[in-house]
């Protein structure tokens, strides 16, 4: 694996390798000293052109636990706001010796450009690009699903996952559809027709406009953040109507299979797409997703950068 740009880049076996590796590395997280020497001397740059505290911190923690040198570059107050281009920023960071660039950008395809334009030579990891993809989020979601639904091993064959909300603008939904499909799960997307992308019927998933129809018996439901401003662009009439038709409350959560779980990539709009009762309830694994995010990102950095001996990993599992 040279870069991680899209969940579509991952075969079933590659995805399983990342999840298995995350599981092994996660054991470090449970130790008193949460650190491995694996990436000592390697430099990871967090290149964040868009605010994203959670993803940035998650990658920071992952890089630090693997002993990588870490440079965090946030667009706010940086040279980007003075008009420096993506290309020049990337050239600067590579000149500082970056081995991997973790990039979050508001433009779809920006990580793809970094990886393929010939500007720089280092590994590129997509930490969310515009309305395109967010592959490490999908990996941490898959890791969480697997933990609860498959005993932390193997794939997700035969499981059904419902993803609800602003699919049109969601990079999380795109990456999850691709990855969960690769792992054998069946995915149902639920949204008002206005928030479904054109051509969604060609995606490897089911599509529904009716949440109550889609939920019964599902293994998991993933609620996507819906920005209240979408109402002003006529995507839906009001937040109340949205909540009534597509929000997850206790009644709807009870339609899931007995062991069904509730996920949310965060940040949540409590009261909008999810009620507080459900967000904090028994089925919710939302906080756990954050923990798993660090493990999965350690695995991605490890597999992309750490061609170093298996020994480190063996040590971790002892």
């Amino acid at each position: 694996m040279r870069h991680l740009l899209s969940a579509a880049d991952l075969t079933r076996d590659e995805a399983l390798l990342i999840l298995d590796t995350a599981g092994e590395l996660g054991k470090v997280t449970d130790r008193a000293v949460k650190k491995l020497p694996t990436l000592r001397g390697r430099t990871v740059v967090n290149l964040f052109f868009e605010d994203s505290t959670r993803t940035r911190i998650s990658f920071e923690a992952a890089a630090k636990r693997l002993s990588a040198d870490l440079i965090t570059f946030s667009a706010k107050g940086s040279s980007v706001s003075k008009g420096e281009s993506l290309k020049d920023t990337a050239l600067t960071l590579e000149a500082m010796g970056a081995d991997a660039v973790v990039v979050r950008h508001e433009a779809s395809g920006a990580p793809h450009r970094l990886a393929h334009s010939g500007w720089i030579d280092c590994a590129v990891i997509n930490a969310g690009d515009g309305t395109h993809e967010h592959p490490t989020q999908a990996l941490l979601d898959a890791f969480t699903l697997r933990h609860h639904l498959s005993g932390g091993e193997g794939a997700l064959d035969g499981r059904r996952v419902v993803i609800v909300g602003d699919v049109l603008h969601s990079r999380v939904a795109r990456s999850n559809v691709l990855l969960l499909h690769a792992l054998g799960a069946s995915v149902t997307l639920v949204a008002p027709p206005t928030l479904m992308p054109v051509g969604v019927q060609t995606w490897p998933c089911e599509v529904s406009y009716d949440l109550d129809d889609a939920l019964p018996g599902a293994s998991a439901v993933m609620m996507l953040r819906v920005q209240r401003e979408r109402m002003n662009a006529a995507y839906f009439p009001s937040t109340h109507e949205y909540s009534r038709r597509y929000g997850l409350d206790t009644r709807r959560a009870s339609l899931l299979a007995d062991d069904g779980i509730v996920l949310h990539p965060g940040p949540m709009n409590r009261g909008m797409e999810i009620t507080a009762d459900v967000a904090d309830g028994q089925r919710s694994v939302i906080v756990e997703q954050v923990t798993n995010g660090v493990n999965v990102r350690m695995a991605v950095l490890y597999l992309i950068l750490g061609a170093r001996a298996e020994a480190d990993l063996t040590e971790a599992s002892q």
Partner: peptide, 17 residues
């Protein structure tokens, strides 16, 4: 940003229908 269709949906680029 590009022609609106299945591909714009996949690439996450705003469509020009």
């Amino acid at each position: 940003q590009m022609n609106e269709g299945a591909l714009s949906g996949v690439l996450g680029l705003r469509g020009w229908p």
